[in-house]
Amino acid sequence: MSNTVTLDVLVVYNGSIASSSSDLSPSTIAPFARGTSNSSCNAAYAYLLESFASLKLNAGFSSSVDIVGAGSCKSYWTYTNGAWIKNNKRCKTKQIFGKFSPKNETDFALRELLFSNPQVRSFNSFPLFKLFFDKQKTYDALSNYSIPAITLSGKSLKSIKNSVNSLKKIIKSHPNPKDFTQEIILKDRFGAGGRDIYKLKSDDYEGIKAIQGAHPLLSFIIQPLIRFDRGFNYNGKFVSTDIRLIYLKGKIISCYIRMAKNGDFRCNQHQGGSLVYLKLSAIPKAILKQSQAIAKILGKKRALYTLDFLLSNSDNAYLLEGNTGPGLNWDINNPIDQREAKKLIKKIAQEIFSRTQPKPISKSLLCAPHNSRSKNPFWPRASETLCPA
């Protein structure tokens, strides 16, 4: 197709959040609508595209609704001279940086189409996404490190009671049962951002049923509430805190804590939590030990992912959840957050750059005996060599 532009890398964002560049509305001047909770993403992804440009990579940004083929979208955004530009023409690439989390059959079909050619590569690990997206699967695969979890099997009072009793049996046989309170957390099995999370008494079956009834399309898991309000000490003060470790290529490249606001147990920034970056040396040893064990099990040495932990009041570490799509945006009122987010973006851009470069021919292959080489006529004759003495 003569009008198709070939890109080195294409960012594909969830179409329910990011606007298509094919949207001709005059008010659509950037991928993320101004005045919304996602508007700060405009600066983050502009910086990502600028980082690609500094590495001489031709990059674009598309919405998942633009997907039309393998590594191909019908339109794309670029960022030049401080402005977002709509490119209402088809583009194609072999390298996708996906911020596109399939949640229904349509989404999964679009993702399958996007990667229908094996030459089209994803920066993100899809097997890891599927593991972390489903909180029950996360627990089942990493139960020795995670907070116990049971999926509610039904919506009747009887089935709810059976699920709660199953959770109590797991807690009873747990090595550290005293880490758990008599309250439970009811959580969207496939949720994110601290949304649709509720705290109830473990015997409040009617309350659980009412929440299920108010959200008929959601699947819920139940977990025990951990005693963690005095687990992590920051600057001499105890506060309910979760600890996030960001991994890339098998190594921790960034870490920070999120502290819940007064009176809340949820630490997410979306729920009013505050964020503070820490040095790796400030992370409790129990959490580092658990994270290293989990990273070894996952074995995804090239992947980008995060592991979130809680530290109980008894200094035991628990995996809260994992994530393959950590947010790249920053709090505009927090210069440290901006600086650290930009560091992460640069590392991602550098890793994508390395993946777009041709792999060098190994010296062992060049020095192999003539009869073991390819029959390509451009190989040197047996009397010749490509290797230094």
Rank of each mutant, 00 (worst) to 15 (best):
P388V: 12
A30Q: 13
Q223E: 14
W77M: 09
G327A: 13
L114A: 01
K251N: 14
Y277V: 08
Q290K: 13
F108M: 08
T181P: 00
E105I: 13
N376H: 08
E50G: 06
V239W: 08
K261Y: 06
G207D: 04
A382G: 09
K56A: 10
F132P: 08
A109L: 12
Q182K: 12
D203G: 07
R302N: 11
D8W: 08
E50L: 11
A349V: 06
Q357N: 07
Y145R: 06
S163D: 15
S143K: 14
R244I: 03
D308Q: 09
S383H: 12
Y13K: 11
V12Y: 02
I361T: 15
N124P: 00
C91H: 00
K237Y: 06
F123P: 06
Y139W: 07
K300P: 02
R258W: 00
K375H: 15
R373G: 07
K343D: 13
F238R: 02
P216W: 12
E112V: 03
H174R: 03
V239D: 12
L310Y: 15
N14P: 03
P388N: 14
P377G: 03
A53M: 04
L245F: 04
L275H: 00
S143F: 13
Q357D: 09
R373N: 08
A53W: 02
A282M: 12
